[in-house]
Amino acid sequence: MTRLIEIEDLAVSFRTDRGEVEALSGVSLHLDEGEVLGVVGESGCGKSLTALAIMGLVPSPPGRITRGRIAFAGRDLLGLDEAAMTRIRGEQIAMIFQEPMSALNPVFTVGEQVAEVLRVHEGLGRTAARERAAQLLARVGIPDPARRLGQYPHELSGGLRQRVMIAAALACRPKLLIADEPTTALDVTIQAQILALLADLQREFGMATMLITHDLGVVAQVVTRVVVMYAGKVVEEGPVEAVFERPSHPYTAALMRSIPALAEGVSRLPAIPGTVPAPGAWPRGCRFAPRCTHAVPECGAGVPPLYPVAPGHHAACIRHAA
C-alpha cells in the first residue's frame, strides 16, 4: 500500500479572549491510497479541525498551525502557497460536509455549481461541462438529472443536496475524499442510501476516504481502519474489527459500552461520568483520566503516547506501556 496522507504531530491553536487555546495537540495519523479511514470522536475532539488542516482551511486568524507536518502523496501541504493549495483542493482532495445547504451557494443552480468545478479544474467549455455535470448527477443517483441541473439547492431534499455535493466533489476524480459527518443530518433510510452510494463510488473510483463521524454504527459498517480522538489527541487507532472487539483505550471501551445499540438487554446504560472537556480546559496528563474508571495517579504525570496493542493497533493508555 502506498501512503497517501501522513500527518505528524499536528497542533492547532486559536487566539481567544482567554489567550491562545490549543484545539489540536499533536495528532499523528496516516491514510493509504484507496483506504477508508474512520475518524471518531465527540464534539471538540478535533476530528473536523484535522480535516480542515488537511484542506488548508483552518480559519487564520484566529487559528494557527503551531507545529507538525502534513504530507500528501509525498508533498508537504503546509509549505504550499494558496494557489497551489487551491489546485490540490479541487483536483486531488475533495471534502463534503454534514449540511450540504451551507456548502452549496444558494444563488446558483445545481448545474452551475457542478459545472464550475469542471470548467475551473478540468478546463472544460460551457457545454461540455454541463453535459459532464448531468452525467455526474446521474452517476450519484439523482433522478431526472437534466431537470435538476436547472434547480437551486433549496428546491432539493437533504438527501439530493448531499448527492449534488458528492457529484461536485468527485468531478475531478480526487485521490482523497474527506466526508465530515456526511449523513448526520439525514434520515436513516436516506443515510443508508448515501452510505451505499459512497461505498459504490469508492470501489469504482478507488479513492481513499476519510470519514469523520460520531456514529459507531456508521464506522463499523463503512471503514476498514479507525482512529478514535478525544480532547485534541488520538487515543486509539487500529483495524475496525480489532477496535470493536478489543477496544484498548478506556475511552473507546467506555464509549462502546454506553451506546444503547451495544447495551442490549441492560436496564441501565453504563454511562461515562462527567463531561467532554473543552479546549483550554484539558486536564494534565491523560485527558480522559478524570472520567476513567481505571485511572491511577501516574495518569496525571504526562500525556501517554500511542503504545502498540497488536499489529497496527495502538492505544494511548499507560496500561499498555511495555
Partner: peptide
C-alpha cells in the same frame, strides 16, 4: 422493517444497512 434494516449496526461484519429506495 425497512426502517430497522436501514440502521447501521455498530458491529463490524454485521449485515450492512439496506437502503430503502426513493424519498418520502
Amino acid at each position: 422493517r425497512a426502517l430497522l434494516a436501514a440502521v447501521p449496526q455498530p458491529k463490524p461484519g454485521a449485515p450492512p444497512p439496506v437502503p430503502l429506495a426513493g424519498e418520502v
